[in-house]
């Protein structure tokens, strides 16, 4: 079945840094409502969709939030100082355009730097074209957040955009949800505040008490020039997580996911990630523990304005999720 990449395009372009996921939730809610029995917005900002069934209760999670910058100070000349919201890399920032919720754009500049080691976040500022503090304050306010500007572009089989982390996960879940014929009790959590420490997933899992959970998120690759050694390659299939800093996938979950992938001729690759974590990190420690796995979409340049995925891997992720929901672990 063909994926509707226009949905992905729209998903990536919605404004939704951690804590401000409402617009993403509204968009997803509209997409999935016809396919679900219940759709709920919870107190932390998670969007939870339920499809009743008879078998195991399976939780699927993908986070809606993206990394961003929060304004902490507006100076006399109208320049904005900021703090990162989530894992922002300083080296990705200079010269980038950013966008506020109400549409105002800005660019990131840097003070005169004496030596490279002085290149720190507090030397950077956002210029929104305001000529005074007063003017700037009319446009943005302290505590307001901005996100990267990063168009959705297809280049061959690859896709570039901002916020593919983790709108690509949301997209995979939406596609799978539409296609799924699973008769199990399915709960889909589009989570908030993952980038700040998987906070949405923690409360969602506590409420939902699933038997089994799968998070869908991005992972890094080792296939760019002189990259950190890692076996994951773009275009070589969906990733099945072995471990990251937040989770060691239980061996029986690994075996189940790999067996279902092999059964459906879905290309997959094992993913050993030496840093980072996903919603499954929080979910698997909920209450007395929830056996959890992760479907990973190999992604280059994670947390940049031009994250890159391969559409074949995305297709494989959708196929794998659909199959897993139909063949849950006994």
């Amino acid at each position: 079945m063909d994926m509707d990449l226009r949905i992905l395009e729209q998903l990536t372009q919605i404004f939704g840094p951690s804590g401000s996921e409402e617009q993403v939730a509204d968009f997803i809610s509209a997409q999935i409502r016809p396919y679900c029995d219940e759709v709920i917005n919870d107190t932390l900002g998670n969007l939870i969709a339920v499809r009743h069934g008879t078998g195991k209760k399976i939780m699927v999670a993908a986070h809606m939030d993206e990394i961003g910058l929060m304004i902490t100070h507006i100076d006399k000349e109208g320049f904005l100082r900021f703090t990162p919201l989530g894992g922002v890399r300083t080296s990705n920032l200079v010269g980038q355009r950013v966008k506020f919720n109400r549409g105002r754009m800005g660019t990131i500049g840097v003070e005169k730097i004496a030596k490279p080691s002085d290149f720190k976040l507090d030397k950077l500022f956002i210029d929104i074209g305001a000529v005074s503090q007063n003017e700037a304050e009319q446009i943005v306010h302290l505590g307001e957040t901005a996100v990267f500007v990063g168009d959705f572009v297809e280049v061959g089989s690859r896709i570039m955009a901002k916020a593919l982390d983790d709108r690509i996960g949301c997209f995979v879940v939406i596609e799978a949800l539409k296609r799924s014929k699973s008769t199990n009790e399915l709960v889909f959590a589009f989570t908030a505040q993952e980038e700040l420490g998987t906070r949405g997933a923690k409360t969602a899992a506590y409420v939902l008490e699933p038997d089994l959970a799968i998070a869908v998120d991005v992972t890094a690759t080792g296939d760019t020039p002189k990259a950190h050694p890692m076996s994951v390659k773009l275009g070589s299939g969906v990733g099945i997580k072995v471990l990251d800093r937040s989770l060691i996938t239980p061996p029986q979950i690994k075996r189940w996911m790999a067996a279902v992938a092999a059964e459906g001729n879905i290309p997959f690759q094992w993913e050993v990630l030496e840093y980072g974590g996903t919603d499954s990190g929080a979910i698997h420690l909920s209450r007395g523990g929830v056996p959890s796995g992760v479907i990973s979409i190999p992604t280059r340049y994670v947390h940049s304005p031009a994250e890159m995925v391969d559409s074949r891997d995305v297709q494989a992720a959708v196929d794998l999720l659909v199959s897993l929901l139909e063949h849950p672990l006994e």
Binding site: G222, P229, M230, S231, V242, L243, V272, E274
Partner: peptide, 11 residues
């Protein structure tokens, strides 16, 4: 009962 260890990340 667990111990620290190593894991294959690439061949």
């Amino acid at each position: 009962m667990d111990e620290i260890g190593l894991i294959v990340k690439k061949i």
